[in-house]
Amino acid sequence: MATHTYKFDVKMTCGGCSGAIERALKKANADGLGVDTFDVSLEKQEVIVKGSIPYDALLEKIKKTGKEVRSGQVVE
């Protein structure tokens, strides 16, 4: 399965916000859903994920945290 890098612009206002997204991505990784690595940056308001998880499934995981996803794209 192909591996992609995804970049999302997510509205996060505090460490709790970024922590919620980190927990969701860790769980997706543990569940074997195709999340290899991720980086959540509160300062840049961005989430970068590498893996084979489909874009729509990843977007759903991030949205389930209740955070506003302003934009998302496949970087590679």
Rank of each mutant, 00 (worst) to 15 (best):
Q45G: 02
A2N: 15
K7T: 15
L58W: 07
V75G: 02
A24V: 13
D56T: 12
K44N: 14
A20G: 13
L42K: 12
M1P: 07
V75K: 07
P54F: 04
T37Q: 10
N29T: 14
K26N: 14
V69H: 02
L25M: 06
A30L: 07
V35H: 01
L42Q: 13
K44G: 06
G15S: 10
Y6G: 04
L33T: 00
A30P: 00
D9Y: 08
V74S: 03
A28D: 05
V49Q: 04
M12R: 07
R70T: 05
I62G: 09
G32Y: 06
E60P: 00
S18E: 07
F38V: 02
G72T: 08
K44C: 02
G32C: 13
V47W: 02
Y55F: 15
R23D: 15
I48S: 11
G72F: 09
H4R: 12
R70L: 06
K7W: 00
V69E: 04
N29H: 14
G32M: 09
C14P: 14
Q73G: 13
G15H: 10
A24N: 10
F38Q: 01
Y55P: 14
C17I: 08
G34I: 03
S18C: 10
E68A: 11
T5A: 10
E46G: 04
D31G: 09
Q73S: 15
A24Y: 07
S18K: 09
T65N: 14
T3R: 02
L25H: 04
N29K: 15
S41F: 01
I21P: 11
I48C: 02
S52Q: 03
I21E: 08
F8W: 06
K11P: 00
Y55M: 14
S52R: 01
Q45I: 05
